[in-house]
Design a protein around this nucleic acid. Structure first.
Lengths: 193, 193
DNA sequence: ATAAAAATACCGACTGGTCGGTATTTTTTC
DNA sequence: GAAAAAATACCGACCAGTCGGTATTTTTAT
């Protein structure tokens, strides 16, 4: 029946997420994932053509959740919006536990694999444009001085990604919430009129 | 004579750098590296206890080169120094070709591997302190307003790391140099008095 | 100065295991 | 009973590291 099929598929995705997060894309073997899902290898390859395909499916889901998060952070003014976003940064990227390494790892592979490259870079460009638009709005609403939106967007994204990376190796005690906010304040001041 | 020994060691390091850069840490097999170096596997393990040790050795070298670069960027005033550093950022990180993926990969492994983590965190803290000191100097010399040096340092480092990542995305990138400078200008304005 | 001894550098076949993916068979579902 | 779904057995490639042994260099003894 379709019922069972769908559930199996969901189980595979869930197990893959867990394993990829825990040990990384390479280290998580298909056998591991199948064991975690309580499913045979045959079932795995019945539902997905490859390990990579499973990852891609997870990646799409994650992108959607980030999109949703960003939209949820919208506020009347752009500076408030950005501040709010910086507040969710730790939340977005620490959802569950450490899925980040997994995306980084995969993305790294993407930089060497022509096929996946496109699926990965496109969203990045999308975010760059997204923030450029926000900055432009901030300028027209009078919050920001007349900076180059493209550059400003790049600073914002660079900065977010950088914070993210630091979160990966930083000592456990660091208060990222506060750091993110503090940092965004400095950034904001750099953009303010 | 140790002449031969030293040259072999250098050959291994060179080949490893090339292979790690080209295909990544995992994908580059010890056999590959040996072939590239024109050296036997026995020689490899005679000089290094493990594949990881070779990687660590390369990392240390790279750190030294970054340190040298940073010192070379010093200027009379702190803002000038930082601007100068942003100017060299692309140079530092694009030395040779595409070593970036390799260091990113290293970073990734650091988040999972105790040994590598230790080798990574110490330098990271060092850079954080280094920039905190620079900011503090900038405050006392009257260039910056009274921001929290620790936070400011984190912004700077985040930003540098973020730029690094962008370099990965846009290898044949447009005016990378200009982006770095533009961005640093915004950052500077955020810190300025 | 030279031969023997010791130490160091190097070689490459081999091991034990892992992995992504496939081919085949069995079970479930309608 | 046929088609979809799932289980099992298996394949070929690969890989980090080992090990017994050889070549080369350095030290020691005469």
């Amino acid at each position: 029946m379709q019922q069972r099929s769908e559930e199996t598929q969901a189980r595979i995705l869930g197990a893959a997420l867990k394993k990829f997060s825990g040990s990384g894309y390479d280290a998580a073997s298909v056998d591991d994932i199948c064991a975690e899902a309580g499913v045979s290898k045959g079932a795995f390859y019945h539902h997905f053509p490859s390990k990579q395909a499973v990852f891609l499916a997870i990646f799409e889901d994650w992108l959607s959740s980030v999109d949703r998060g960003l939209e949820l952070a919208r506020q009347p003014t752009i500076p408030d919006t950005l501040t709010n976003m910086s507040r969710m940064l730790p939340v977005i990227f620490t959802q569950a536990d450490g899925q980040l390494p997994m995306f980084l790892e995969f993305w790294l592979q993407a930089s060497r694999d022509e096929t996946i490259w496109k699926a990965t870079v496109a969203p990045y460009q999308r975010y760059l444009d997204y923030f450029a638009k926000l900055v432009k709005q901030g300028i027209t609403e009078g919050s920001f001085r007349r900076v180059d939106p493209q550059s400003a967007a790049q600073v914002i994204v660079s900065f977010a990604v950088g914070l993210l990376l630091q979160g990966l190796i930083a000592p456990r005690g660091t208060d990222w919430q506060k750091t993110a906010e503090q940092s965004m304040k400095i950034l904001m001041k750099g953009l303010a009129k």
